[in-house]
Design a protein around this nucleic acid. Structure first.
Length: 847
RNA sequence: GGGGAUGUGGUGGAAUCGGUAGACACGCAGGUCUCAAAAACCUGUGGAGCUAAAACUCCAUGAGAGUUCGACUCUCUCCAUCCCCA
């Protein structure tokens, strides 16, 4: 590794050049095809890792390619810079979150620049700055006006000793991450965005997102979780209360033998209050509530519950059934109360077995003679024939669903309904480092939105970070204010917004980052939006992408957008792993960007990342692989410089080849054009940078062979040759080789931009290679004169022959049958048929 | 339990529309150069059989079946790993 190309010098030189020239700045240009290329912006947590870099290298390569193809490419970068980690770091390092964030951003920008990423830095957007979060507040007020932002009680994690709200990730094993006290669940007034209002549209429009991966759409579909079913009103015994339940199985209504309620259901504690059941129920609820959803609903989790001492009345049968509170019922789904039919639902079945609750079968299989119910080992969940169901007995259960729902509707006991799993978006966070919610509480006037002209409500700088509670609450100068209406003393909302609010529209801010009348300028947004290609990790498949889609629709209804969907195409790159595990500090398998750029340079890192695997798959980091990429670039460097050098190559002086052993120059010309085609299509159609690079490697290998063999060729002539004639049959050697070298450098330039700029200049061209047109191939040049035909006998490869391209199928068939090797296999056999696949293969089928 | 993805040499991967399995690279082995090494360059490299060598033959894409003249590719069953949901 002693001698290598001077990548440090070259990379610095061209990064400076691009920066000085402002080469990547873009403006709206109606005359050019726009292309908005977006990467998920990072959280500035300190150092960028190779996982980030993979995202950016894919994006940057694409951006450079598209520019050369003549697109007007918007390629911006920003930082998602509000959030809990900054606040924690501030507490630990005794710095201000703003300071810490600023430092992280500066570090990350340096690393991104070192990788040669071609962002338009003029559009840099940092979400923790008032000129950005002002518009979060503005949007909040618009949502509030439209009823899309509202307040209601919701349970939160509460640490009684720290007296603070905890995020879910701060609860470890049901205990506070800092002081290890038992976490409690408290109901608190919180702000919500009404995403459920768009549930149907969000679901429906998934069908129009042709450029999205199927699995992401599927995940969103499941998350929205639409189900059609029936709402049935049970009555509470000895009360006039109604217990509404949602079911997708109204056909099993006659088989209800108990009810279960979610532990979080507010009615639970109300119903047991002052009764002998109170103590037991409370203890149970408090225990269950702290387990996370996953463990609670896991298949193998023991189903548990407690009788609460009350009964519900089935409207169809007037039967009384006991009410339980159970661990497997979630408040979020349906109404939080479930009618339990143990005969036809597996979880209900297990529960009933455990607590000796009767099991009543109301559907029997279509196939006759089934074992009696008492011997059932599991619930019967499939459709069948209705039994024990009054006037519905004998019906097909699918049919009965409809009939029973109809009957309930007639009687006013229930109705058909559509249910979504999607919940409204809780945006309140009880912490400092986020966008202040622009609301004022006045004793006289109530909830008052901050007037638009008073925005932004700025985060106060002067707060104490004790690690406990929300520092904003203790900041008197922030909290105390005047009511905008009556001007009396009032108090500010101290909750801040979820950071997902910031990332739900940042891509629109890039379009007009300097605009100060609204979040973004219509004229410019209409030119750039929607995003043509979004690139990011699969971990955002649900939350971020769903919120951004919701924002787009809501802002459209406010009149800010013309579009319905923000991201036309989505690409999710795989993870970067090392030693079989995702790179992470705790595992100690992190490869830092600096380490790689210092040792091999950015071009090598870029090339390796793209070459080692197709971008949607996980990428295994390999030191040998990186060295291989480095070797390749050195090879390219020597090859091109050898061609431009005045000194003849020392090693190539040995002997002159015979005239007939001269390299096939026409082949090289063909190879060049085939490579253009392959590389272009691999990038454009498939995102398969790995095969694009291997095609370039093949071209380099071919060139290498030609240059080495062609010892009679005076290398000095490379420097100032005329461009190759691409129209006529067989160009001169010099032109062909020159064309091959220039094309190769052009094709390689989006992947390894620095070295290619330098080589381009060395070849006697003016910079910048990034502003040259992407090469196009000549369809005539890629046609082979002779093609290889595979000959099979009974599907087995037996011979190959070369034939002229224009030979007819019949002639090919004849040649195949006459082939010496084939004769051996078909002699004495009767030929049943011969299949000829034009220009590919002949299969001779014998009896 | 439901849904999805993946499974190809010693390794990463290629085979884009059902038509030569293993492109390109890594690694390894041998060679050239060198006092030696590194670098660079050249040659070989799925397995087995048969060979002095070449040629040739057979086997091989997680396992097993099916469709087809022909299957890494399509269908079914199973196994393993990963992801999402419950």
């Amino acid at each position: 590794m002693r001698e290598h190309y001077p990548f440090k010098k070259i990379e610095k030189k061209w990064q400076d050049y691009w920066g000085k020239k402002g080469q990547f700045k873009v403006k709206e240009d109606p005359g050019k095809r726009k292309y908005y290329l977006l990467e998920m912006f990072p959280y500035p947590s300190g150092k960028l890792h190779m996982g980030h870099m993979r995202n950016y290298v894919v994006g940057d390569t694409l951006a450079r390619f598209l520019r050369m193809k003549g697109h007007n490419v918007l390629y911006p970068m920003g930082y998602d810079s509000f959030g809990l980690p900054a606040e924690n770091a501030a507490f630990q390092n005794k710095t201000h979150p703003a300071e810490w964030t600023k430092r992280c951003i500066s570090d990350m920008r340096k690393q991104q620049a070192k990788m040669g990423l071609s962002y338009d830095w003029d559009r840099l957007t940092i979400t923790c700055q008032p000129d950005y979060y002002k518009w979060n507040q503005w949007i909040f007020l618009k949502f509030y006006e439209k009823g899309l932002a509202y307040k209601k009680k919701a349970p939160i994690n509460w640490c009684p000793s720290c007296k603070t709200v905890l995020a879910n990730e701060q609860v470890e094993d049901g205990k506070c991450w800092r002081c290890e006290s038992r976490v409690e669940i408290k109901d608190l007034e919180q702000w919500f965005f009404k995403i459920t209002e768009y549930a149907e549209e969000l679901l429906e429009d998934l069908g129009r997102l042709a450029g999205w991966p199927e699995r992401v759409k599927l995940m969103q579909e499941n998350w929205i979780g639409k189900s059609t079913g029936t709402l049935v009103n049970f009555r509470l015994k000895d009360s006039d209360k109604i217990l509404p339940i949602f079911t997708t199985r109204p056909d099993t209504l006659y088989g209800v033998t108990f009810m279960t309620m979610a532990c979080e259901h507010p009615l639970v504690l109300e119903l047991v209050e002052g009764t002998k059941y109170e103590k037991e129920v409370k203890e149970f609820v408090n225990r269950v509530i702290l387990e996370d959803r996953f463990t609670r609903t896991a298949e193998d989790k023991e189903k548990e519950g407690v009788f609460i001492g009350r009964y519900a009345i089935n409207p169809l049968t007037n039967e009384e059934v006991p009410i339980y509170v159970a661990n497997f019922v979630l408040l979020e789904y349906g109404t939080g109360i479930i009618m339990a039919v143990p005969a036809h639902d597996q979880r209900d079945f297990e529960f009933a077995k455990k607590y000796n609750i009767p099991i009543k079968q109301v559907i029997k299989p279509f196939t006759v003679h089934r074992k009696p119910l008492t011997e059932l080992k599991e619930a019967y969940i499939d459709p069948g024939i209705m039994v024990n169901s009054a006037q519905f007995t004998g019906l097909n259960s699918e049919e009965a669903k409809e009939k029973i729902t109809q009957y309930l509707e007639e009687k006013g006991w229930g109705k058909r309904t559509v249910q979504y799993k999607l919940r409204d978006w809780l945006i309140s966070r009880q912490r400092y480092w986020g966008t202040p919610i622009p609301i004022i509480y006045c004793e006289k006037c109530g909830i008052m939105p901050v007037p638009e002209e008073d925005l932004p409500v700025e985060l106060p700088q002067n707060v104490k970070f004790t690690g406990k509670g929300n520092p904003l609450k203790d900041c008197q100068e922030f909290v105390n204010c005047r009511c905008p209406k009556c001007k009396e003393k009032a108090k500010r909302e101290t909750d801040t917004m979820d950071t997902f609010v910031d990332s739900s529209w940042y891509f629109s801010r890039y379009c007009s980052p300097d605009y100060d009348k609204e979040p973004f300028e219509k004229k410019r947004i209409d030119y750039w939006m929607p995003v043509d290609q979004y690139i990011g990790g699969i971990e955002h498949a649900i939350m971020h992408l769903l919120y951004a889609r919701f924002f787009t629709k809501a802002l459209r209804d406010i009149g800010l957008y013309k579009i319905d969907e923000p991201f036309k195409k989505l690409f999710c790159q795989g993870m970067v792993v090392k030693d079989g595990a995702k790179m992470s500090k705790s595992k100690g398998n992190v490869v830092s960007v600096d380490e790689i750029t210092n040792k091999y340079g950015a071009d090598t890192a870029r090339l390796f990342i793209l070459f080692a695997s197709p971008p949607e798959k996980d990428l295994e980091w390999s030191v040998e692989g990186v060295e291989g990429s480095f070797r390749f670039l050195n090879r390219v460097w020597r090859l091109v410089n050898q061609a431009t050098s005045h000194k003849p190559q020392a090693t190539s002086q040995k002997k002159k080849p015979e005239a007939d052993s001269l390299p096939p120059v026409a082949d090289l010309h063909r190879k060049v054009h085939q490579t253009i085609k392959k590389v272009t299509e691999d990038i454009e159609k498939r995102f398969h940078f790995n095969t694009a690079i291997s095609a370039i490697m093949e071209l380099v290998n071919a060139l290498h062979l030609v240059v080495n063999q062609l010892t009679s060729y005076p290398v000095t002539q490379f420097k100032t040759g005329k461009p190759a004639n691409r129209q006529t049959g067989k160009p001169a050697n010099r032109q062909t080789i020159e064309e091959a070298i220039e094309t190769m450098v052009l094709l390689l330039s989006p992947f390894a931009p620095h070295i290619c700029e330098e080589l381009w200049e060395n070849l006697g061209n003016k910079p910048s290679i990034g502003q040259k047109d992407w090469p196009t191939y000549d369809p005539k040049a890629i046609i082979e004169e002779e093609i290889l035909i595979i000959i099979q006998v009974d599907g087995k490869l037996r011979s190959r022959i070369k034939v002229p391209i224009d030979l007819s199928d019949d002639e090919v068939k004849e040649k195949a049958l006459a082939d010496g090797r084939i004769k051996k296999f078909i002699s004495g056999k009767k030929i049943k048929r011969v299949i000829v696949i034009p220009k590919k293969l002949v299969n001779i089928v014998t009896e």
